[in-house]
């Protein structure tokens, strides 16, 4: 029972990341009709907002390391610690939460620049053209990041206070072996809050209502005198913010490198296909569902029966869904169907 609970929690935690990325992908597809293969690169850029914040906060002075006698070695002491002592250390420790403050405006600007500068020229082009140009854009973004930060993953640890694990087994009346890292719980909570915020924005604001109307019938909304294109551009920026926050918050779980977006992109497209192209609810549901399935597939008991299932489970589900229900779990009738 404890083991199953842990795998569910682990699946939800993974699913949170998948859902956030897939949500952004679906927002762009649902509004602009663009299959955005650069979305994974935007996730990576979000993660590098956290890396940049870390670099800025730990800008250092070189001080001779007296512990080394063989040669002249130097260690780096951040200026923030030299100037502000404990307060400086505290700020550096909380670099990941602080990075959100950087990520939101930066990702909004990046999103708007991408949409206005390139993607809008491909609205009326075939999906194959859109895929090619966004894939190319993703490669360009990756190479730029690689040239600035190098190819190696850069560790960005969580604040010290949440670096350990929570004994949730005791809180929930389960065994004391049910523990889970604090930061992963925070990530899950963050994913749920961001998803709820996006849905609230679309559901309960007039702006969101118009966007949803535009998603249903773009021409009619345009005939009402509303500049729906302008709103869709803002939605593209919003999708970039969502995936950017997902990337920044993910850095303590997995040290970011220039290629991390591609690893998530493939999985996220599977999530979107399983959930249903253009369905926001479907993307979130499929994200969590595939996360949980992936986690269960890694259990020894499951692998004993189906060796290697942990590597293929996500794609197996995608194949089954495409064969039996091409529009996905919650996709609109007619989408991806003849």
């Amino acid at each position: 029972m404890d083991a199953i609970f842990l795998q569910i929690l682990n699946g939800l935690d993974k699913g949170g990341a998948y859902a956030l990325i897939a949500l952004g992908l679906t927002l762009v597809f649902g509004t602009l009709g663009v299959v955005n293969f650069a979305h994974g690169a935007v996730f990576m850029l979000g993660a590098f907002c956290a890396v940049t914040t870390q670099h800025l906060l730990t800008f250092s002075k070189k001080v001779k390391d007296e512990g080394i006698t063989f040669f002249d070695a130097y260690k780096e002491v951040p200026y923030l610690e030299i100037w502000w002592g404990e307060t400086g250390s505290f700020i550096i420790d909380y670099k990941v939460p602080f990075s959100i403050l950087l990520a939101v405006p930066v990702m909004l600007l990046i999103g708007l620049a991408m949409e206005r500068g390139l993607i809008r020229f491909f609205y009326n082009r075939p999906h194959a053209d859109q895929i090619l140009v966004t894939f190319g854009l993703a490669i360009v973004i990756q190479e730029i990041v690689k040239s600035i930060y190098g190819a190696n993953p850069i560790p960005v640890p969580a604040p010290e206070i949440v670096s350990g694990s929570a004994n949730i087994g005791i809180l929930l009346g389960l065994g004391d072996s049910v523990v889970y890292p604090w930061w992963r719980l925070i990530y899950l909570a963050n994913a749920l809050v961001v998803i709820a915020a996006v849905f609230s924005f679309l559901k309960f604001t007039t702006y969101g209502m118009v966007v949803r109307a535009g998603m249903q019938d773009r021409e009619t909304v345009g005939l009402l005198g509303i500049n729906i294109q302008h709103r869709f551009t803002v939605v593209f920026g919003l999708a970039s913010i969502v995936v950017g926050i997902a990337g920044a918050m993910y850095t303590p779980i997995l040290s970011p490198d220039y290629h991390m977006g591609m690893d998530f992109l493939v999985l996220s497209f599977v999530v979107v296909v399983v959930g249903g192209m253009g369905s926001l609810e479907g993307a979130v549901l499929a994200g969590f569902m595939l996360g949980v399935l992936q986690s269960f597939a890694a259990m020894n008991e499951v692998k004993a029966v189906f060796p290697g299932i942990d590597q293929i489970i996500v794609y197996l589900v995608a194949v089954i869904i495409l064969l039996t229900r091409p529009r996905g779990l919650m996709g609109r009738k007619g989408v991806m169907e003849d």
Binding site: D2, N10, S177, V178, L254, A298, M299, K303
Partner: peptide, 23 residues
Amino acid sequence: TAAVKTPVGAGDFSQYITPVLNS
């Protein structure tokens, strides 16, 4: 108790670590 193979470059090993807790 168990010997579990993990893919090279998996990145997130959490789904392989959680079963250790109750093994």
